[in-house]
Design a protein around this nucleic acid. Structure first.
Lengths: 224, 224, 224, 224
DNA sequence: AATGAATGAGGATTCATTCAT
DNA sequence: AATGAATGAATCCTCATTCAT
């Protein structure tokens, strides 16, 4: 049967450059086709959601027949899961606290970074949010993949918070983490809705600032 | 031919009482069918999105044949628009700043209110966000309706901000409004993802607090 | 949704004549379409088996689009089940022991009748045997339907045996019934293979004769 | 290109021992693959028939890629023909009248043997009957092969009849042969349907007995 | 002696929608 | 105020087969 790829969450999808240059030059046409299919799939999925992503459309955009898509991916669900998987690297790479002077500045720099990232490669989040908003339990793998990645991002945020404001109690860290992620999601959506009238960078700076203040406030002994 | 409802944003769907008295029993049955269709449609739309909402499914859930759905609604687009329209009243009613003591308290009370609202009738926001995240220009009326409602909510938030922190400059109001709405959206999604582990009320309180602090900070003359 | 017919095993499919003449003359076009689909389906199923019966082919033969077939039948399985159901009446009607002189003669007459029946309307048995030879547990309803009908035929044979040779012990009745049915099936197949070179009527006469003799032998006290 | 086997009806597939000695280890692996494919193919064909036997399924069951199947067999038709061919030896070997005392006993012994055979390796007959029941002229070679084998079996039965009841006239031999084969087929099917509730051995004994009686009757001068 | 990749045709089924009644 | 019936286009996916390696 077909060689369907199992989602290898940890392959950071950047190795393929030298692979292509090495031995399996022409033999590895499969790799190239797979890429083309994925490219087409992101494009479609991002603008139409799960149900709106038809194999026929992906086939047209990728130039490969529908049956070839099924050679590379077991079904639509796994195709979309692979799409999500692929943006994983790009996305997660950003969640590293940049070196910097004071905690506040570093925090702010991170926020700016994320804001910019959302502008440049928003596919991952957009698709993930789409899948999340739908309630049905089907299309399991795609959704699961998104949630895994998101979970990892959450841990990163929590770590950053703890690093920057060490005396913050654990429940506060949890609360703030959720809040930080949520606002990030929301700002992404706001940008979608408002378009150019929304200054994402300014908003993320605001977010970072307010987050920091709140963290400090919550770490101080006397307050509700 | 059929009496298709144009989306009258301001008819809060409860006035139908006198309609019923006017045209008498004859129409009562039609109204009931329409309601059943809408009920079924929300259920489906909420868990599958626009493309996933098939007339056949709505037909099955409502118990009425597909052709009857087309008697009540011009097409799928208008059906979903109607679904959104219906949650309008419920939703907008919440965005009234409750009477209260100090500005901070009133602010906080509002936030709590919204948090609770999201728990009780989340269909409106969920559906709207779904439509928003898709990039293509289909399902025009439904999307437009959602954005109108959202716009109205934004104005309400802005007004509240101005009322509570009068000296806030206009750009800051705009920025903060966007931020406030975004965070609300994000928190809603966080609740979807996290389920019971997410304390929506606490988060909204945190949100209100941090928003208020930020507003005060931004209204003060000297600050970054 | 569609009005999919539940298999009413006991409607002997002969009433439809006056129905057509009465009220729902033009309204009952559905009935007519259903019939056309079934006609086409027997034709195809009989010469290609279950898997070979494609909806597209049935659609072409019946002149109705594939989607219309799905209005009348839930899926392929139910279509074929309906096909089997329809030949039920024709087929079962034969299994009545004709009036006649001695038991041997009546037995023989029945056999002749069945032999002739197999020549005239072999669809039921052919399809049923096809389904039976396939081992998979799917396509449930079609297969189940055949087995039900067959079961009924078995009871008829057993009753006839008991009537003709009353002193036959119960286990012998069971054994002979199975044997009688089996040989009938086999003779049908032999006719399929041998074509004109096979004299089905003569074979069934032989069968009846040998069956009768065996029954008599088994009912006699002394022998294995 | 590929070494596709033409159906050599008489190579009973066991002789490959010397082949192995001739061309040595090199080909052993090919032979093994071929066997695995055939094993998988019987399994599938037996439970789904000709149309239901997909190369993909055979590929999955055998663990070999579809393209490898095409190296060993020209097409699906020849694959199934090979499947049937393989059961040939096993099956035909049974049709030898065992040595024994009286004609009646030898007859009975043969029947018992066949009954047991049907229980042990029913694939051949099942597949053959499946192919026979379909009316269209496809899968030519497989069908032809089955009919050849069956023809041979018929000759064997006829010979046995003549040997056991020498004075039987020729037309009676033909008729009885057809009848004997038909009943055997039918009993096989009965076993399929009835499962454990069907005592195949007892039925075949009954069959042999009744066949013998009938033969004797037909060979006697005075009878209807 | 294989096999990874590809492919066009066709598989069943569902789609949104219409129309006569 | 409905609804039974129909329908063409689209859905996802599998088919048998080929070919370069």
């Amino acid at each position: 049967m077909s060689r369907v790829s199992q989602p290898t969450l940890c392959r950071p999808e950047g190795k393929s450059v030298d692979e292509q240059r090495t031995s399996r030059k022409r033999r590895a046409n499969g790799e190239e086709s797979r890429r083309r299919i994925l490219d087409a799939a992101v494009e479609v999925a991002v603008e139409r959601g799960y149900d709106g992503t038809s194999i026929a459309l992906v086939s047209k955009k990728s130039g490969l027949p529908a049956s070839s898509i099924y050679w590379h991916f077991k079904d639509k669900d796994e195709l979309i899961a692979a799409v999500i998987e692929r943006s994983f690297g790009t996305w997660l790479a950003l969640w590293v606290l940049p070196e910097g002077d004071g905690p506040r500045e570093r925090f702010s720099a991170l926020a700016t970074l994320i804001g910019k990232a959302l502008l440049d490669s928003p596919d991952f989040l957009r698709l993930g949010l789409m899948l999340t908003l739908e309630r049905r339990p089907v299309e399991a793998s795609a959704r699961r993949m998104f949630l895994q990645v998101r979970e990892q991002a959450c841990r990163q945020v929590a770590a950053t918070l703890r690093e920057v404001v060490p005396e913050l109690p654990d429940e506060s860290v949890a609360l703030l983490t959720t809040y930080a992620m949520a606002a990030a999601d929301g700002l992404f959506i706001a940008k979608e809705i408002g378009g150019d009238s929304v200054d994402l960078v300014a908003l993320f700076e605001l977010h970072a600032h307010s987050l920091y203040d709140t963290a400090v406030r919550l770490s101080a002994p006397g307050r509700p």
